[in-house]
Amino acid sequence: MSGPAFRSTPLLDADAVEAGIAGVAEGIRRRHPDGPLAVVGIHTRGVALADRLAQRLADRSPPPDRGALDISLYRDDLDNLGTIPTIRSSDIPFPVDGATIVLCDDVLFTGRTIRAAVDQLIDYGRPACIELAVLVDRGNRELPIAATYTGHTLDTARTDHIAVRFRETDGEDAVVLLRPEEAGS
């Protein structure tokens, strides 16, 4: 890969990531002790988070349904994309009408991805409610959107690049801050 080199600073280690996911799972369990529930991940790392949450909630009755969304077709910036995004399959294998859905993503930033995901879910049917679970809320919202369950809250600058890494997708659990290397450094 070309482009600027990034200096990476660790923000959260594997234990903190695991604790964050556990906290989110606990929050979901408290709010929904029983009854049907679905966890839907936003590609790519939201799907990994949804899978982890589903594992932790597998002893609920009934165990949560799982789904995945690729929001590419609901983005508001197609005009600015110079390359064709690779669209992965969206998979919602349960009836959305009347469902209680916890939407999952790794990072909550501007809120635009969540806006797109909510629009997309509603095109599958009319859920009873949609909640939002994120591992990291890094602030800097551009839309009036808030998470229902948050693993960690991080104070970041708009220009920072926050990367969440999951075992399933990246081989390790971590959250790191990436900043472009300054020229000559």
Binding site: D70, S72, L73, Y74, R75, L78, I87, R88, S89, S90, D119, Q120, D123, Y124, G125
Partner: peptide, 17 residues
């Protein structure tokens, strides 16, 4: 392929364009 998958949804439209 993902476009074909849309045809099984109740709303067969996406806001891409």
């Amino acid at each position: 392929r993902p476009f074909k998958e849309l045809f099984t949804r109740s709303v067969k439209k996406v806001p891409a364009l």
